[in-house]
């Protein structure tokens, strides 16, 4: 026993000396930083084809967003208010302090938007006088439009009871339309969608439906996600059961437990019957 104690003392001393040497070596090794020019990472927020966000560092070691390497989806917000503007006046939301309700404008992201209002559907000129405007509300397939917006070929909204002009303004094609025929901005689609989906609009207003990020307290600064950021209005009835969303790729599954080769046990019933 005495011998063991003596050896232990020597060993501990040696260990201490060795440790200090290793520690010194660690200090000596300086990580070589290689500055590589990287492509900007752009990730989608709620659904593909709607709002996007470009990854950048807003302060050292703090990105504005972290993106999934698997699916390209936004996974984490360093700055939830990036690229937002005040939502503007919304009925029954007047109590929110100024600048505390924010939305991300979609208008500039819509590629066809500048063309819509100027090139064809500007509502003026001889070719756009009433004869070319729709005479009734019966859907008419227009090949040019279908080629530009593929979703239109198979409009999955309203179960064949609605058509383009129920949502889009007749003469101002870069706007949507509300119940009174007045134009509504693409950044405020809730004013249009609430025409039919009033219960959802009410829940959205109260924060029960839809998504808000930022501060959770009542009256806190929040970014509100509008209807079209999560739902594709041309494709809300996708498949048998889709809960109103377009299908997307899931993030990778969890790690298998120790000794487990695959997860096939989940595909059989545990109790034979």
């Amino acid at each position: 026993m005495k011998k063991i104690a003596t050896y232990a003392t020597i060993l501990a001393m040696c260990g201490g000396a060795l440790y200090s040497v290793i520690a010194a070596e660690n200090v000596a090794e300086q990580p070589v930083q290689v500055e590589a020019t990287k492509e900007p990472v752009v990730c989608f927020e709620s659904r593909k084809g709607a709002s996007e966000i470009t990854q950048q560092e807003i302060k050292p070691g703090w990105p504005n967003v972290k993106c999934s390497p698997t699916t390209g989806a936004a996974l984490w917000y360093g700055d939830p208010f990036e690229g937002t503007v005040p939502m503007g006046k919304m009925p029954l939301l007047e109590n929110i302090p100024d600048g505390h309700a924010l939305v991300k404008p979609r208008t500039e992201k819509l590629a066809l938007m500048p063309l819509c209002s100027t090139a064809c559907h500007n509502g003026v000129g001889p070719q756009f006088t009433p004869p070319t405007l729709p005479k009734d509300k019966r859907p008419t397939p227009i090949p040019t439009m279908e080629a530009m917006v593929p979703d239109l070929k198979n409009l999955q909204h309203g179960r064949d009871r609605i058509w383009c002009m129920d949502c889009h303004h007749t003469t101002k094609r870069n706007m949507l339309v509300d119940n009174f025929g007045d134009p509504v901005s693409f950044d405020q689609p809730q004013l249009l969608c609430g025409k039919c989906h009033g219960d959802k609009l009410r829940d959205w207003r109260d924060g029960i439906h839809g998504k808000r990020i930022g501060e959770f307290t009542t009256g806190g600064k929040k970014r509100w996600f509008t209807c079209t950021e999560c739902h594709n209005p041309h494709n809300v009835q996708d498949g048998l059961r889709n809960k109103g969303f377009v299908q997307l790729q899931p993030e990778p599954p969890p790690q298998l437990a120790k000794g487990m080769k695959d997860a096939k046990h989940e595909l059989v019933h545990p109790v034979p019957h």
């Binding site: 917000y77 998504k211 990020i213």
Partner: peptide, 27 residues
């Protein structure tokens, strides 16, 4: 500090809701 948890902020369908139970106006 008043901010939503991370899972609430990324849910793409808005299924996750967080708030103060003592505040009758909270989500």
């Amino acid at each position: 500090h008043g901010r939503y948890p991370a899972c609430v902020e990324v849910c793409p369908v808005g299924a996750r809701k967080f708030g103060n139970l003592l505040d009758p106006e909270s989500e």
